[in-house]
Amino acid sequence: MRRVGIVSFAQLTSPRERRRNEVELVIPVVQEAVRASGIPKAEIGFTCSGSCDYLAGGPFSFVAGLDAVGAWPPIPESHVEADAAWALYEAWLVIRSGEADSALVYGFGKPSLGDVDEILGLQADPYTVAPLWPSATDLAAMAASAAIAAGVVDERQMAEAAAAARRAGLANPHAVVGEDVTAEELLARPVTRPPLRDADVAPVTDGSAAVVLAAEDLARRVCDRPVWITGIAHRIDTPSPGARDLTDVASARSAAAAAGVGDAPVDVAELSARHSHEVVLLRRALGVGSGTVVNPSGGALVADPVMSTGLIRIGEAAAAVRAGDAGRAVAHAASGPALQQNLVCVLEAD
């Protein structure tokens, strides 16, 4: 099977972009990713997007997103109701199958329209859990308490992860938080969602992202340093949080094994950890040790453009490889309450 490379990436995350509607969020990233890919738009062989109707408050929100692509003449196109990292997975399959030589992948979401924490709580079991209205953060906070009680995570590790993210956010133009802060300073702040402090929770923001993929031959033609997807896999755990081992992330562990994360050292890892304890759990589940720079962008803890966050991790990891900052990088995306579903992607240059 042929290799698939990432040839361009664009993202748009900023609170001031709240004025845009979904189409207007998608237009600039698609235009930029296509332009930077060097592949004429008319030659892109497949398009796939990821979004969530419930963020927009009505059905078929992805339909308008298509207006931003310029789907004329008609295009081979698909959509996943998930973070666009899963759209990238679908596009990767299509290129691997030989049906297309290139693909445009994009994600978008406007969590500013509603209460995204409440909305994502409705991913929980609709019969016995959702009617109690736990939010996504409530479910994650419970998982954090279980991990702390089991001794696999402590509050200092969480504060260190949050502080590192906030410091990295200062250098990331797409971050919505950035702060020169230490773990000690964060630990002095109040616990707001026990055991989480505000800095332990990702700041949701409107945003979008786009990536262009190409098969090996084409990628080499259009790109001086294509970044190869050398492994990609995703797995899901049981939806019942009380039936899961919340001190581990089994589906991330098995996805990482399937993607081959452990086959060689990892220089950079970009993790879709929306809560600081998840950085610790995911490092362990992915087998990413102290030799790995985790979330040089700050990760989801400095900007969580829901439905694009995972795709942006892939884009950021690819950017690190392309820039020569990493020879081998890992990107991670997550979906569902308390890391129920996880996607892991390994990226390498030649």
Binding site: R20, N21, L113
Partner: peptide, 18 residues
């Protein structure tokens, strides 16, 4: 059978062009 009311409130933003 159970009945599950789900009421979600939004502040919908028309966007620039609309």
């Amino acid at each position: 059978r159970i009945v599950c009311p789900i009421r979600l409130e939004y502040e919908i933003n028309a966007g620039i062009a609309p």
